[in-house]
Each structure stands twice: as structure tokens, then as C-alpha cells.
């Protein structure tokens, strides 16, 4: 809702910022989540994909060719430590606009993955 020239109008937030001459500030979070999983990085990502598909039925989930799982606009990547390949570090990255879902995903993934891939 913006007031300009003595009139009130309801506009989209992006439009309101523009009309007020303000620029957007992007706030982004990346959380490292460590899990134990003996699978390869690729298979771990597949398991994450299936797991999230079964838990988050209402959300758009994609498995991108660059080795990323994307939930709405939240990115999830997997890397294994060279000296301890069964310890996987998941990088979960989201913007403030997806704050609620991002926090939820970190908590969910920290609990680990189901043993069998769905």
C-alpha cells in the first residue's frame, strides 16, 4: 500500500519499492548441514530428492543437471570430505523470501535421510 500525491494505491511490493525510488536488499542464508551417509555424492543427492519429494508434496522440487536439488528457490548441494567420504556436507541456500521453508529444510535434513531410497 503506498500513498503518493495524496492518494492511496495497492501495488505489488516490487512496484512500490520502485515508485519510492528504493532498491531491493537481498538477504541470503547458506547453512552447512553435516550428515552421515555412505552413498556417493550423486546417490546422496538422489536420496535427498526422493526424500523431499515424499515430505513436501505441495512444493516444486527439481533435480538440476548441475548436481543441485532445488526446492522452490532453495538450493541444496552435497559434498563429501576427502578424508571421511561417508560424512557429507549439505549446503542449503535460500533468500529471506523463502525464510520459513529454508529453516524448515535445514532442520529436516539435519535429522538425516531414510535408509532406502524411495
Amino acid at each position: 500500500l503506498i500513498m503518493k500525491d495524496n492518494s492511496l494505491r495497492l501495488v505489488a511490493p516490487e512496484q512500490a519499492l520502485k515508485e519510492l525510488g528504493l532498491s531491493e536488499h537481498q538477504l541470503r542464508f547458506t547453512c552447512r548441514v553435516q550428515i552421515q551417509n555412505p552413498q556417493s555424492e550423486q546417490d546422496t543427492l538422489n536420496t535427498i530428492y526422493s526424500h523431499l519429494k515424499s515430505v513436501l508434496k505441495e512444493h516444486s522440487i527439481q533435480h538440476l543437471p548441475d548436481g543441485t536439488v532445488m526446492v522452490e528457490s532453495i538450493l541444496i548441494k552435497v559434498s563429501a570430505a576427502a578424508e571421511e567420504p561417508s560424512t557429507k556436507t549439505l549446503l542449503v541456500s535460500w533468500s529471506y523470501q523463502d525464510e520459513e521453508l529454508g529453516g524448515y529444510l535445514c532442520t529436516l535434513l539435519r535429522k538425516g535421510l531414510p535408509q532406502s531410497t524411495g
Partner: peptide, 10 residues
């Protein structure tokens, strides 16, 4: 200026 990125452990 127009962005902030917080990178932390869980």
C-alpha cells in the same frame, strides 16, 4: 550495499 549473505553451520 544491496545484499547480505550469512554463511553458517546449522
Amino acid at each position: 550495499e544491496d545484499s547480505t549473505h550469512i554463511i553458517c553451520d546449522n
